[in-house]
Design a binder for these strands. Structure first.
Length: 816
RNA sequence: GCCGGGGUGGCGGAACUGGCAGACGCAGAGGACUUAAAAUCCUCCGGAGCAAUCCUUGUGGGUUCGAGUCCCUCCCCCGGCACCA
């Protein structure tokens, strides 16, 4: 009897050996082609759950596969370590965020090591350490220098729970992306990055192998729309502005304007409001200020607004039109003002009906001309009531009217974007300090590069008050102006943590480089990332910011490429009882007990086997024992002595079939690996091991040939079950390590079938399955099919109308 | 409301460009081994029927010699977007 498979003992032993030998250390001297395989770095929440394994396990398998194929693979790991949760947890427990974070990292590193991945831990990156955030701050200065960072007062998203502002991307359905608190608005002076400069480029994904879904989400987020800015005339004594600009995508309907609507925050509101309307307008503006994002965005809510008492003039037809305010008009989009065309816009129509404003038809469809409009007409048609443009097709009229307006200098064609600049200030402690200094004489001054990092003080009181805790830390705040040497104050807000994760993958290429954020030579060698895997929830956050970052660096001449991630793959989510796993729900599945029981190799294999990686699935451990049993069976197949036919005998009945199945398996597994179809890859390996078991039973090949098949199986399985295969490999006496072995290659010739199944149908129904030679001719196939007694039973006495032949697959006999 | 993705046995899922529906695994049933149990091994396992055979990929229709796969209608689930003028 051989010793039993003992995963726990084996895994600990090999993990130690691999670490001692630095087996997975990246060899910078290697001349092999590089392969940068990256998994999104985890946030330091405290524990690795099964979802982390689902993200890390299969990506490690793929990286190992590439490694065995001869690539020089960089597959690093690190920690996204700044952020509110650390601070919140620390406050709750009365420990310092740094202590809490670092102890979580220790625990998570231990758990990550139990996966048995090829991470080169010498390259670990931790974003909250000064040697890292020094460079985060440096990038801030670079962006500032390039004119991409600026300070501005604007209405911003405010999370009352986090007591901090949020970027637009971080507001999900009007709620904070982290804590799901409804977001409110505040007017604050904040730091922004000019991501809008790259709007057009960010909506294109040329040459990128990314999921369609993510590309669409990013393009929608940019929200480009082409239209025309049109100014309406104003004439009020004492009001300096003589026009109001609106943005419209429907210049063809400009003769249908019957009123105008301004956002409550529009700067002209106060100036234009008549004394009679003042009270109502002010009340409305005040009410709008206090609405949460959710209330404001709700499409269910009936639109309301108030009249300002003022009028503007439509220059095209001289009409005097009333100016209203309503909160369905957003101050941040277009010009913050819209021309209302109730005849051809649903929102304007509803608003006009509610307040008894006139509806004017200016685009007529062919059958409805002249009737009173019962709803806004959005379709194509011909212009009416539009002066000299009457009779023109409305799509043509867009250009014609725009030109007419441009000629008279009443406006111009322009493009609007939904995308807003990235707000990066956070009024919290646990983040990288923004390296800016406010000097009473010199104004806002950047911290000189030589003074970086601006260290986060250890002794801050970090309770969230809505203002940065650093504000009250005198040792931090008070400084000297680098320009004039006079007393000055430091910026006390910290940076959005997405800033830290926008460039971490660059740091992995030279994690200890002291002279810069990265070593330019090594960056050139490794970047861009060849495959990036992670959850889809970062579509318009992390992934979007990272692309902006790289484009900005490219324009500064710091990098030579324009996209960070060549191929992107989103694994699905592992749920528990069909719900998202979360600590608050208490349904988090901890992998440690499965690892301790059955081993990491079984957990890795099982997670890959449950279904397509992009699909995710609901956690159910009932199938995991099947994978454990399978590895045990292979243990026996490989290590139990095999008694086959004698060596050197030339009559070896099973060899040809075994070779064919072996080469077919190599082909299937290699192709599935490339497609990241791990579930079918494992099925193929299972079928192969089942086949070897049959050969073993029959003893139909020589010992050498049997062992050769087992060697192939082990190598194909090595990325999936690294410890298990290393152990078996070593027990069989093969050279250490299996992970330095070459990935098997297949021969099309050996994989070819000599005989193939031929399906015979009568009227499309399967009546016979024949086994025929793989090089059968059409005539022969048709003859064999029609001669079959089973087929004859169904064709007897009937007229054969047609015989269809699909080469090497099927014969269908059509009878009547 | 709009845009994606999906709906296949008791369960997870497989099926390349239209050609054997249900690979592989789980659960279940029966058997072998055992004093017994566990483990392991073997057999069966979509439904109806004694059988030949018939039915079966969310629903209804269509194209085709042939449809899980293509086209149209409707229903349900998941993800995203949602007053952007």
């Amino acid at each position: 009897m051989i010793e039993k498979y003992n995963p726990v003992e084996i895994e600990a032993r090999w993990q130690k050996r691999w670490a001692d030998d630095k087996l997975y250390k990246v060899n910078e001297a290697s001349t092999a082609p590089k392969w940068y395989a990256l998994t999104m770095l985890p946030y330091t929440s405290g524990d690795l759950h099964i979802g982390h394994w689902y993200a890390m396990g299969p990506s490690d398998v793929y990286a190992r596969f590439k490694r065995m194929q001869g690539y020089n693979v960089l597959h690093p790991m690190g920690f996204d370590a700044f952020g509110f949760p650390a601070e919140n947890a620390a406050i709750k427990r009365g420990i310092h965020p740094r202590v809490w974070t670092m102890s979580n990292i220790d625990n998570m590193r231990r758990q990550l090591k139990s996966i048995g991945a090829i991470y080169d831990w010498d390259r670990e990156v931790i974003t909250c350490l000064p040697e890292y955030y020094k460079w985060t701050q440096w990038f801030f200065l670079k962006l500032w220098e390039a004119g991409l960072a600026y300070r501005s007062k604007a209405p911003v998203n405010w999370c009352p729970t986090c007591k901090a502002v949020l970027a637009n991307e971080q507001v999900v359905n009007g709620e904070c992306w982290r804590c799901e608190t409804p977001v409110t608005r505040r007017d604050l002076e904040q730091w922004f990055f000019k991501i809008t400069k790259y709007a057009d480029e960010l909506m294109r994904h040329d040459g990128l192998d990314w999921p369609e879904r993510i590309k669409t989400m990013q393009a929608n987020w940019v929200g480009r729309s082409e239209g025309t800015e049109i100014s309406f005339a104003l004439d009020y004594p004492g009001v300096e502005e003589k026009e109001i600009k609106v943005f419209t995508t429907r210049p063809d309907t400009v003769f249908g304007v019957t009123f105008m609507v301004l956002a409550p925050e529009h700067p002209l509101v106060a100036k234009l409001t008549s004394t009679a309307c003042k009270a109502a307008v002010e009340a409305y503006v005040e009410k709008a200020r206090h609405h949460t994002e959710i209330e404001r965005l709700s499409t269910e809510r009936e639109k309301d607004g108030v009249f300002t008492g003022a009028y503007a003039v439509n220059r095209l037809d001289g009409e005097k039109i009333p100016i209203w305010i309503a909160d369905y008009v957003l101050a941040s989009y277009g010009t913050g003002a819209v021309m209302a065309v109730p005849g051809h816009d649903e929102r304007d129509f509803a608003f006009a009906k509610k307040y008894g404003l006139p509806v004017k038809e200016v685009v007529a469809s062919h059958n409805s001309a002249g009737c009173e409009l019962k709803e806004a007409f959005l379709g194509p048609g011909v212009l009416v009531n539009s002066s000299s443009f009457d009779g023109m097709d409305n799509t043509m009229a867009k250009a014609a009217i725009s030109e007419y307006i441009e000629k008279r200098d009443w406006g111009k064609r322009t493009v609007s974007y939904k995308l807003r600049d990235w707000l990066i200030s956070r009024q919290r402690y646990w983040g990288a300090p923004i390296p800016a200094i406010y000097c009473p004489t010199c104004g806002i001054v950047p911290v000189p590069e030589a003074d970086l990092p601006v260290l986060l003080p250890e002794d801050a009181e970090f309770k969230p008050t809505g203002e940065s805790p650093l504000k009250y830390n005198e040792g931090f705040v008070n400084t000297i102006c680098p320009k004039c040497g006079g007393p000055a104050k430091r910026e006390t807000d910290t940076m959005d943590t997405f800033m830290c994760s926008s460039w971490y993958y660059l740091r992995y290429t030279s994690p200890h480089f002291a002279a810069g954020a990265f070593d330019p030579e090594l960056l050139k060698k490794w970047m861009p990332v060849d495959i990036y895997t992670g959850g889809a929830e970062h579509a318009v956050m992390h992934l979007f910011y990272s692309r902006f970052f790289i484009k900005a660096l490219r324009d500064m001449g710091l990098v030579t490429f324009g996209e960070p991630f060549t191929r992107l793959f989103n694994q699905g989510t592992i749920t528990a009882d069909h719900q998202k796993m979360s600590k608050s729900k208490g349904n988090v599945v901890n992998p440690d007990k499965y690892v301790g029981d059955l081993g990491a190799d079984t957990v890795r294999s099982y997670l890959m086997f449950i279904g397509p990686w992009e699909q995710g699935g609901d956690w159910d451990d009932s199938g995991i024992y099947g994978l454990s049993r399978w590895l045990n069976r292979i243990w026996g197949l490989a290590l139990e002595p095999y008694e086959g036919i004698g060596c050197g005998g030339n009559d070896e009945p099973g060899l040809e079939d075994l070779l064919r199945v072996t080469h077919q398996t190599i082909r299937r597994v290699s192709e599935d690996m490339d497609r990241l179809r791990f579930n079918t890859m494992i099925s193929a390996l299972m079928e192969f091991s089942n086949y070897i078991a049959k050969v073993r039973e029959a003893g139909s090949v020589t010992t050498d040939n049997y062992r050769s098949a087992v060697r192939t199986l082990l190598r194909l399985l090595a990325p999936t079950a690294p410890h298990f295969t290393e152990e078996v490999w070593s027990r069989l006496g093969y050279e250490y390590s299996i992970h330095n072995q070459k990935w098997p290659e297949w021969s099309e010739k050996l994989a070819e079938n000599r005989e193939i199944p031929l399906i015979v149908q009568v009227n499309g129904k399967v009546r016979e399955k024949l086994t025929v030679s793989a090089d059968i001719t059409e005539a022969e196939a048709k003859r064999l099919a029609q001669e079959s007694p089973k087929v004859k039973a169904h064709t007897e006495g009937k007229a054969v109308v047609q015989v269809i032949y699909v080469p090497f697959k099927l014969v269908n006999i059509v009878v009547r």
